[in-house]
Design a binder for these strands. Sequence first.
RNA 1: GGCUGGGUAGCAAAAGGUCACUGCGCCGGAGUGCAUAUCCGGAAAUCCAGGUUCAAGUCCUGGCCCAGCCUCCA
Length: 446
Amino acid sequence: MELKLYNTLTRKKAPFVPIDANNVRMYACGPTVYDFAHIGNARPVIVFDVLYRLLRHIYGVGHVKYVRNITDVDDKINARAAEEYPDLELNAAVAEVTAKTTKQFHEDIAALGVLPPDVEPTCTSHIPQMVEMIKVLIAKGNAYEAEGHVLLDTASVPDYGSLSGRSLDEMIAGARVEVAPYKRNPSDSVMWKPSDDSLPGWPSPWGRGRPGWHIECSAMAKEHLGEVFDIHGGGIDLTFPHHENELAQSRCAHDTDVMANVWMHNGFLQVEGDKMSKSLGNFVTINELLADWPGEVLRYNMLRSHYRQPIDWTVKGLEESAKTLAGFYGGEDFSKAEKSFAPPVLEALSDDMNTPAVMTALHQLAHSDDRPALVSSLRALGFAGDLTDPRASGVDEAAIQQRIDQRLAARAAKDFAEADRIRDELAAQGIALKDGPEGTTWELVR
RNA sequence: GGCUGGGUAGCAAAAGGUCACUGCGCCGGAGUGCAUAUCCGGAAAUCCAGGUUCAAGUCCUGGCCCAGCCUCCA
């Protein structure tokens, strides 16, 4: 089965041909670790996890290398560190913030069924590689030093703007921000900036400073995947300026036509129809959602939409996802099921990761009563069959079971008034009883 | 203003050609002491205008509307 992927570089869907089928390489931009990851951050993590699983299925587990970085140098981190740990020396405070946030990120996404990448490089451990690349870019005339900064000379890059589809001219015309006076062109991006003693910094030929945002991914990708690799992914908002600058730097430094052959971008996420923003008060973190919903429900809900489409994240959608998954699982023990994609599932995934079509295929498997194919496909997609309600941790299950038994006894004695009274009493506690052929079960109402 | 995507039933979400997929919701029936669960059946949609094609929801052009980017926010 041929894998087709949509490539932002060409704006077309095309068959995926790896550079080396024995070593398929992909890079995805990871989080800046200064705060809890929100559900929008979870989207690329889940989407590229599915791609990783698919590539491992096609090319073999040992033949795919997935790199997802941690950005642990950033002025937002510095600000957060100063705010949260005013008594600590800044570097120590920064280390606290990045360590704590990284740990939280790992816990949150593990609950979403996400596999760890093969390499998770941090910015702070790749400073020498960045400095080296900047030196090369200066030597080649693609970067210049100005007032302690080093900037990418975007005018020196022949087809700068080709990824995002914009020209230098229109960017200058449309610029709405005040341009720093030391920039030759408004679009020139900072690769290195000076740090005073109050900020984290590293020695460099241009003085003590810290890297700009884009150079980190150029340097880390080179370090772990080489000069040219197969797939680069991230959120659509990163297309410009982040990826545009990143690939310009890498191509100039390495004299290559491309940095990655295929560039993939996931669409944005809205919450209940609105843009997610702190000012609207609808900023929702993965961690908060995990207090109310099984992680697998969040994962399923994310994959119901095609990754390039915008997704409207709603409670109603989560309820539907929970109901659908419960129907798929049917109390089955997933632990000893194998992981493999059933043909119709693989076919849907191979068409530019058409996960909505995957869902249709799963429903058809469910209707066909082919339980093994359904369960193994779900496992291969990263679902472990665990719908434990996180809200149930404070519930006294034994007491509920006792009331259920009492109600069953009342029903057996045809004391329906008492039976209904018990059912109403539990309902008032948010517990819904479900009588079925196998007996009575209960669940927490939403 | 420029660039890039998207507009399919009440909601979500597929598809160049059969009775146009699927789920939730809704309606009817079966089911239970009743209510759930569960099962059976049903109603319901392609933003507008051109074009290409034997055939367009799908491809192309324009319009309208929505979103993202141009503000180191995934």
